[in-house]
Design a protein around this nucleic acid. Structure first.
Length: 617
RNA sequence: CGGGGCGUAGCGCAGUCUGGUAGCGCACCUGCUUCGGGAGCAGGGGGUCGGAGGUUCGAAUCCUCUCGCCCCGACCA
C-alpha cells in the first residue's frame, strides 16, 4: 500500500500548449512524464510504474520462449560498418567520439551485437535454435519527433532475435513470437490487429506488424473481423459487381458534346450515370528511386473507376518510381493529348510496353531499355499506362475524349485502348468487403506496437556467422527479429481509452487496463478530518494490499472533488470511495472502465474487487 | 531539410503594433471559514521577459544574429 500524501504525483490542471495528442496531454497532466527536449522524456514515478508493469508482462511471456540479455547501447562504429548499416542509417543514428577519438554510435537496434555474439559462440546445429531478447533503450535521431511518446528519440524496446538452422526452424521461432505477442498485447488490454507487412528486399518470407487503431497513429490500415488486415498501401477488397451501360449507336466509341462537365460528378449527372460507370484519369510525372541527376521525368497515366482514388504508393511500386507529381497542362497535352477534365484513354500514343516496365523497375539505365525514348519529341519518354482491375472486363464506359468539352461513350478497355499493364493502384474504401472473408473493411489510422520479421541471413551472412549442420557442413544460421515498443503500449492504451471516453462525451478522460495501470485501485478517503473515514480507509487499503492488490490510498488533506479528479487523471481503473455511506457499513466501488458505481458492504470489498480484476483481465 | 507558429513565474495567458522599468488566473506558503466533484476571503513568496549583440536617456516591446520547442510536409532501419 502506498499513501498519496507521501508520493510525488504532480498532476496538472491544464496541459502545456505543446501537447497535441490525447496521450501526450494526459501523460503530462497525470504526472507520468515530463519533457526534457524534442523527443526526450523523463518518466516520473507514476509513468515508471506503468512502464514496469508492461515490462513485467513482456518479460514473463518472453521468458516462456527465449532468454533475456542486456546488450550495450554504446557500439563501436566498425560493428555497424560490417553489416553495412553505418551508411544505411545515416543521420538517423547518433554518433560520438570517445576521449581517444575512437568513433562510437548509440545503437538503434541490436542485430549487429546479437549477431556478433552468435558468430563468436555458436558452432553447431546442436546449439540451435536460440531465441535471445532484451528490454532496453534505443536511440534514433528522428528527423521529426512528435506526438509525445509516440515518436521519440530515446525509447524502450523489447527486441528479440532468433537463430535457426533452417527455414522450418525459423517458421517455428516466428510462430512462437506471434503467439507470445498476442498474449502480451491481450494481457495489456489492447485491441490490436496483426497486419501483413512488406517483407521487403531482404528475402524474408514473412512479416507482421501489430497495430492499434488510433487517430494519433501514423499508419493507415484496413482490417475486418474475418482477420484480414493490411496497410493501406497493400490492402485490396472485393468489388461489388457493377452493371455496365448498354451500348449506344453501333457500340463503338461515340463522341458526345459535354460542355462544362469536366468534373466526374458533373458528367455523371449530365448523362445520368454512376461514377462507377465512368473512367477517371489521373496523370503524374514520376521520378525513379536512385534518381540520377538530369534523368527525365517519367509520364504515368492511371485509369480507374470514377468513384475510386489512386494510391500513390501502389502506383509508385507498379511504375518503378519513387515520387509523383501531377502533370502540368503542357505535359497532359504531350503525353495524353487532352486538357484537364476531359482526359481519357483513347488516343494516347507511345504507350510503354510491359517488358520495358520490368526493366525500369529493376533499375536498368534508361539507355538500356528498349522503346523508352519518344523519338518524335526528342525528349520525354513513353507513357506508362496503368489500368486498375476495377475497370478490367468492363464495357461501354464513359471517358474523357481528350478534347475540350467532349467525352466518349461506349469505351471498352483493351478493345478501344491499350495499356502497359493492369494492376491494383487504388485505395480501398471503408465498408468494402475484404478479399479473404468478405467482411466489411474498417479503415483508420493506427500505431505500430510490435513487428515480427523473418529476417533471413542478411546479418549472419555479412557478419560471418556459421555453424556446422548434421553433415558437418558449414551453414549460415537463419535469423528472425522481433520488436515491441514498450512506451507505445502505454500510449496506445491511453489513446484508445481516451477515444472511448470522448465518444461518450467525456473529454480528457481515460482509464488504463488494471494490468498496466500504475495502481490497480485508489482508495479515496473523502475527508481525512473525519477520523473514522481515514481509519477505515487505511484498513481497507491494508486488506487489499494483503490480497496482493496494488493499492494507492488517497490520504491527502484535500477536498473530495480534487481527489476524485486526480484519481481519474492518473487513469487507475477502480476507485473505492470511503465517505458518508460508511455509517451504513458501505463504500462505493467506481469501475471507470464500465462507468458504473456500486455500493459494497465492508466485508465484501476485497472479494468484489478481486472478481472485477479477474474478469477485466 | 522545406513551410508555418510559439518562447514573459511550475501550468495557462495578457502586455510587444504605438519603448517609460512586468501583470492576470490556476498552482505554491500563512490564517480563518468550508468539506462528495478541481472551495471562499485575507495576506504572502516566486520572473536574467529563451540567449547574445545593437539602437536609445531608457528595451519584454525596435533592429541583427542565435538557441529551443510545437505543428504540416519530406523522412522513418
Amino acid at each position: 500500500m502506498q499513501r498519496w500524501s507521501k508520493l510525488f504525483i504532480p498532476t496538472l490542471r491544464e496541459a502545456p500548449t505543446d501537447a497535441e495528442v490525447a496521450s501526450h496531454k494526459l501523460l503530462l497532466r497525470a504526472g507520468y512524464i515530463r519533457q526534457l527536449g524534442a523527443g526526450i522524456y523523463s518518466y516520473l514515478p507514476l509513468g515508471q510504474r506503468a512502464i514496469n508493469k508492461i515490462v513485467a508482462i513482456v518479460r514473463e511471456e518472453m521468458d516462456k520462449i527465449g532468454q533475456e540479455f542486456l546488450l550495450p547501447t554504446l557500439n563501436p562504429r566498425e560493428l555497424w560498418e560490417e553489416s553495412g548499416r553505418y551508411e544505411v542509417m545515416g543521420d538517423n543514428m547518433f554518433k560520438l567520439k570517445d576521449r581517444k577519438g575512437a568513433e562510437l554510435v548509440l545503437a538503434m537496434t541490436h542485430e549487429e551485437v546479437m549477431t556478433s555474439i552468435a558468430r563468436n559462440e555458436l558452432r553447431s546445429y546442436k546449439q540451435l535454435p536460440q531465441i535471445w531478447y532484451q528490454i532496453q533503450t534505443k536511440f534514433r535521431d528522428e528527423p521529426r519527433p512528435k506526438s509525445g511518446l509516440l515518436r521519440v528519440r530515446q525509447f524502450l524496446m523489447k527486441d528479440a532475435y532468433s537463430f535457426d538452422i533452417d527455414t522450418a526452424g525459423l517458421d517455428k521461432s516466428y510462430d512462437l513470437h506471434d503467439a507470445a505477442y498476442r498474449a502480451i498485447f491481450t494481457r495489456c488490454g489492447l485491441e490490436f490487429v496483426a497486419v501483413e507487412a512488406d517483407s521487403g528486399a531482404m528475402g524474408g518470407s514473412g512479416s507482421q506488424e501489430f497495430m492499434v487503431y488510433t487517430e494519433a497513429g501514423e499508419d493507415l490500415i484496413a482490417s475486418s473481423v474475418s482477420g484480414y488486415a493490411a496497410n493501406l498501401e497493400k490492402a485490396t477488397s472485393q468489388l461489388a459487381p457493377v452493371e455496365d451501360l448498354a451500348p449506344t449507336g453501333d457500340g463503338t466509341p461515340e463522341l458526345i458534346h459535354t460542355p462544362g462537365k469536366g468534373a466526374i460528378a458533373d458528367i455523371c449527372e449530365f448523362l445520368s450515370i454512376l461514377p462507377s460507370q465512368d473512367i477517371k484519369c489521373v496523370a503524374f510525372m514520376g521520378t525513379r528511386s536512385a534518381h540520377p541527376a538530369g534523368e527525365p521525368l517519367r509520364p504515368i497515366v492511371a485509369f480507374l473507376r470514377g468513384d475510386h482514388q489512386v494510391n500513390e504508393t501502389k502506383l509508385n511500386a507498379i511504375a518503378g518510381t519513387a515520387e509523383l507529381r501531377p502533370m502540368l497542362p503542357e505535359e497532359l497535352a504531350l503525353y495524353i493529348g487532352g486538357p484537364a477534365g476531359y482526359l481519357g484513354p483513347i488516343g494516347i500514343e507511345q504507350v510503354m510496353t510491359n517488358g520495358s516496365l520490368n526493366g525500369l523497375k529493376s533499375g536498368k539505365p534508361l539507355d538500356k531499355l528498349k522503346g523508352v525514348s519518344r523519338e518524335n519529341a526528342g525528349e520525354g519518354l513513353k507513357t506508362i499506362v496503368v489500368l486498375d482491375p476495377g475497370l478490367a472486363g468492363r464495357k461501354n464506359l464513359v471517358a474523357g475524349a481528350n478534347k475540350l468539352d467532349h467525352h466518349f461513350r461506349n469505351v471498352t478497355p483493351e478493345r478501344d485502348f491499350s495499356t502497359t499493364l493492369t494492376a491494383d493502384i487504388r485505395n480501398v474504401n471503408e465498408g468494402e468487403l475484404d478479399p479473404i472473408g468478405g467482411q466489411p473493411l474498417r479503415l483508420g489510422k493506427a500505431v505500430e506496437i510490435g513487428h515480427i520479421f523473418k529476417l533471413g541471413t542478411k546479418y549472419t551472412e555479412s557478419m560471418g556467422a556459421r555453424v556446422l549442420d548434421t553433415n558437418g557442413k558449414e551453414v549460415t544460421p537463419i535469423m528472425g527479429c522481433y520488436g515491441i515498443g514498450i512506451e507505445r503500449i502505454l500510449t496506445s492504451a491511453i489513446e484508445s481509452s481516451a477515444a472511448k471516453f470522448a465518444a461518450a462525451g467525456n473529454a480528457d478522460q481515460y482509464a488504463l487496463p488494471a494490468t498496466i495501470a500504475p495502481y490497480q485501485v485508489v482508495v479515496t478517503v473523502t475527508n481525512i478530518k473525519e477520523a473514522n473515514l481515514l481509519v477505515e480507509g487505511e484498513k481497507i487499503a491494508a486488506n487489499l494490499s494483503d490480497a496482493s492488490i496494488d493499492v494507492l490510498l488517497d490520504d491527502r488533506d484535500e477536498r473530495a472533488g480534487v481527489k476524485f479528479k486526480d484519481a481519474e487523471l492518473i487513469g487507475v481503473p477502480y476507485r473505492i470511495n470511503i465517505g458518508k455511506k460508511l455509517a451504513e457499513g458501505q463504500v462505493e466501488i467506481v469501475d471507470r472502465l464500465s462507468g458504473t458505481t456500486t455500493d459494497i458492504s465492508l466485508d465484501n470489498i476485497t472479494a468484489h474487487l478481486q472478481s472485477l480484476l479477474t474478469t477485466s483481465n
